[in-house]
């Protein structure tokens, strides 16, 4: 039984080598919920929230690299918020201020809940997730990283070290429906990212499927039918976009909502986000 507080990647890997089945803890805001409830019994723990290399971000013009230990409070604020507004808006909806101070983007990836607030934005941004182990590093597109509800491609001994997202020109936003005006788990969420240079619209849905769902049909439809130069989309285009988002959803009934409402909600949100991105008729 041990709790190792790693302060460097080398220390983290050493600890992971010694205890390959150790529980990795960054902010602890997911793990401790399970531990406190007795649903998870921890023996060996490797704390990675103070690994210097993981707690930094790097902006090199076209790309933004966020270390896994970057917190939601950091993402919510400038300058990160200016580069990736979709993640910043998502950050503002993560739990409470207390959660955002310690909760990390790496933790969101590690838990990989379909309701994870950071994930639709990462999906829409075509984020690349970086994993490392003593054997080396590998990088996966988000879509390959998240393989199911709370299931990822990470293998034992591997550490999520960060994520790379593009810094795009164009509107982006995140909306989430919950029955409370703060501190609520998404019953449905939508991230929309526009790329004025690449002339694309990207749409990702949360809480309406086993993974975050990208809506490729809606995206293709929008790219072909919006006016990027004038920031315009017709009411008919917005309506069809919403319908395609609804069609892409694969929701279920549970205690938080119904499949029917979730499907309806992602359509409404997708339409509203497209309108925010293209405010002119």
């Amino acid at each position: 039984m041990s709790v190792i507080v790693a302060t460097s990647l080398a220390e983290a890997f050493a600890a992971l080598s010694a205890h390959p089945e150790a529980t990795l803890v960054a902010g602890g805001t997911d793990v401790m919920v399970e531990v406190n409830a007795g649903h998870r019994h921890v023996a060996d723990v490797v704390m990675v929230n103070r690994v210097g290399e993981l707690c930094t971000w790097r902006h090199d013009g076209a790309m933004l690299h966020l270390g896994a230990g970057v917190t939601w409070s950091q993402i919510e604020a400038a300058p990160i918020a200016e580069w990736v507004p979709v993640l910043a808006q998502a950050a503002r909806t993560v739990g409470s201020p207390q959660i955002r101070h310690v909760g990390t983007i790496g933790g969101n990836l590690g838990t990989c809940s379909p309701a994870g607030d950071g994930l639709p934005g990462l999906a829409a941004l075509d984020a690349v997730v970086h994993l490392a182990s003593p054997a080396g590093e590998r990088s996966l597109p988000f879509a390959e990283f998240m393989v199911g509800p709370k299931r990822t491609a990470r293998v034992a001994g591997e550490l999520i070290i960060g994520v790379t997202v593009p810094v795009l020109r164009g509107w982006q936003g995140y909306s989430k429906v919950g029955v409370r005006n703060a501190m609520v788990i998404a019953t449905a969420s939508v991230a929309l990212v526009t790329d004025l240079d690449g002339r694309t619209v990207r749409l990702a849905l949360g809480s309406v499927g086993p993974t975050i769902l990208r809506c490729t049909e809606a995206e293709a439809f929008a790219a072909a039918n919006v006016d990027f130069a004038n920031g315009a989309a017709s009411a008919a285009v917005v309506s069809e976009f919403a319908a395609l988002a609804r069609a892409a959803a694969r929701p279920i009934d549970d205690h938080r909502s119904t499949a029917e409402y979730r499907r309806h909600a992602v359509g409404v949100l997708a339409g509203r986000l497209l309108r925010r991105a293209f405010p002119n008729e």
Partner: peptide, 12 residues
């Protein structure tokens, strides 16, 4: 934040 949906920014 004053609108229904609050932090979720669901509405205009």
């Amino acid at each position: 934040m004053r609108l229904p949906g609050g932090a979720g920014r669901t509405a205009d």
